[in-house]
Write a protein that binds this DNA or RNA. Structure first.
Lengths: 325, 325
DNA sequence: TTGAAAGCGCTACCAT
DNA sequence: ATGGTAGCGCTTTCAA
């Protein structure tokens, strides 16, 4: 491994000058800077991360704790964080909390041991990570008191409901998969807020058994709002299988804009979280905290957007199903 | 930050003894070990990663270069690598090659600068990563000469073809999305090897336009083999939309066992890569290389398995479509 | 069994 | 403008 000392000896100057020339901090003559940088280039010099970290007390690495990167929502987020971190000169060390609080605690401990400068946590069940050694930032729901930034799930739900209301729908089925998830609760809540008084609706938490969509449709339901594209996919395909055309007979709305949303036919209308912005604020917060800036960004909420594709359409003017009671 | 020196002063012993007691390497009395560890516990001591790295020349961190974690194949792999790495005491630093060779080169350089001990690369277009500073391992296709381990895409393709042949199908449509991808080429090749002489088949690379499945079915096609679950999803939903029941009229086979495979109805029959085993071998190789073990694992190939779900079934005994010419 | 001391590569202070 | 040097926290001889 080639180091500053070798460059210094090579050029007959001191390591201090080499360091100064390379980092551009000290006052060194242009000539020496050119000399040193070109020699460093020649020798293929890379500064030692360990040496620098030991001296400065900073590793330039951020930890990212996620529940389960296998779940399709997280990769987009991870990518956003990685990209933002790189812009600020940070690397990303990943850790898996395995969707449990113990896993989360363990992951955080490991990251600290590895010397990260800060930690981003995606707590799934509103657990407050207990970190004192390094600054941390969390992306949670708006209703979570100790978050750094939150996606506006409620507003996302509102967006979904509004869009279908605008298309003329008045009888809704709201589909979630986990009644305990704060995220899903917020999304459903947003939908309900908008629907209340304006339309009929029924909330259904899917576990094993999926509701009989034909039956629901006969009962008047023309629109399904879901808390996830995975559920929407299920709904669309269940519907089409039983002869209910989507969106002609029934409209289906997804959530999260997963890759599958454009792979399925009909393509899924869905609510899009701004993961890039979320990641940006998370990293910006940590960056400020690590630099010990006097004022830190305050908790904020990032709105979602909607994208209307093929799975939603205007309510049929005449009832698609003549047997409706 | 609390360090060994403080513990040493605290206990009136030397830092060397503290280090020895903590790492268990040197010969220290049981009493002292107990004393030191308990005191360390009390003070909440964590060894400094930087200090240790500087001294030992090892960071305990592995870099992982992936083309695009947003593509649904990669998260499962990343999780496997993370899990395996943790078992060997390594952390995982992620880097995004953005599916380009320049991106890959840049990512590798960055990882090296951050002091990783080794690098795992998923080269997408059969590029040979140029790394000399640290050991690296690649997961590529079997036909790639410089790989450490490969998933047996060809055998996966064979598996798919065999399964549908066994179900009585004799007229196939093979669907890929990228004729330039070595992975997809190998998969299709495997299918063709099995089908040749045993059945009729047509290969179709989907770009924008999707083949007319009703037409194909009328031409006799009863089974579709794809190179990805995303394509299979597309095929299933296109088919069902145009009144072709799956699997009654047409069977569809996916690849990769993505999360969506069980969210769609019918659930997708698919080929499952053993990402855990792939990850295990990759990490094991690097671990050995980093420890400078005399003999390193030689390149090896990991077979895939098949899971039959709802999207495939026996060929219809009578033609589903009476208008077949 | 324990301790003193060197040194990993870097930066920053202070002197020249 | 440049150089000498201390020291970040740890491990590892070597000596006691």
């Amino acid at each position: 491994m080639i180091n500053q000392k070798q460059i210094a000896n090579d050029l007959g100057i001191s390591v201090a000058t080499v360091s100064n020339a390379l980092t551009g901090k000290g006052r060194v003559s242009e000539d020496v800077i050119r000399l040193v940088t070109s020699r460093a280039e020649e020798l293929g010099y890379f500064p030692s991360a360990a040496g620098r970290a030991l001296k400065t007390g900073r590793s330039g690495i951020l930890g990212l704790v996620m529940p389960d990167i296998t779940k399709p929502v997280f990769p987009k987020f991870a990518e956003g964080v990685e990209a933002e971190a790189e812009k600020c000169g940070f690397g990303i060390l990943i850790a898996n909390s395995r969707s449990t609080e113990e896993g989360q605690t363990k992951a955080i401990k490991q990251l600290i041991q590895r010397g990260v400068d800060g930690i981003i946590v995606l707590p799934q069940r509103r657990t407050a990570p207990n970190i004192n050694r390094v600054p941390y930032a969390t992306a949670s729901t708006a209703s979570d008191p100790n978050n750094t930034v939150a996606a506006n799930h409620t507003q996302g739900g509102q967006l979904a409901a509004h869009a279908l209301l605008d298309l003329g729908h008045r009888n809704f089925l709201l589909l979630g998969s986990d009644a305990l998830s704060p995220v899903q609760k917020d999304r459903i809540e947003g939908m309900i807020e908008v629907l209340n008084g304006a339309a009929q609706y029924e909330v259904c938490w899917v576990s094993e058994s999926f509701p009989d969509l034909v039956q629901k449709n006969q009962d008047g339901v023309t629109a399904i709002l879901t808390t996830s594209d995975l559920l929407a996919l299920r709904a669309v395909t269940e519907a089409e299988r039983s002869g209910l055309k989507c969106p002609e007979a029934i409209s289906v709305m997804g959530f999260d804009d997963l890759p599958l949303a454009t792979a399925v036919r009909p393509t899924l209308s869905t609510i899009v979280p701004d993961t890039t912005e979320l990641a940006r604020r998370l990293v910006a917060y940590l960056d400020a905290a690590i630099r010990q800036e006097p004022t830190l960004p305050t908790p904020s909420i990032v709105d979602m957007t909607i994208v209307l594709r093929e799975s939603t359409g205007p309510v049929a003017t005449q009832f698609p199903n003549p047997t409706r009671r």
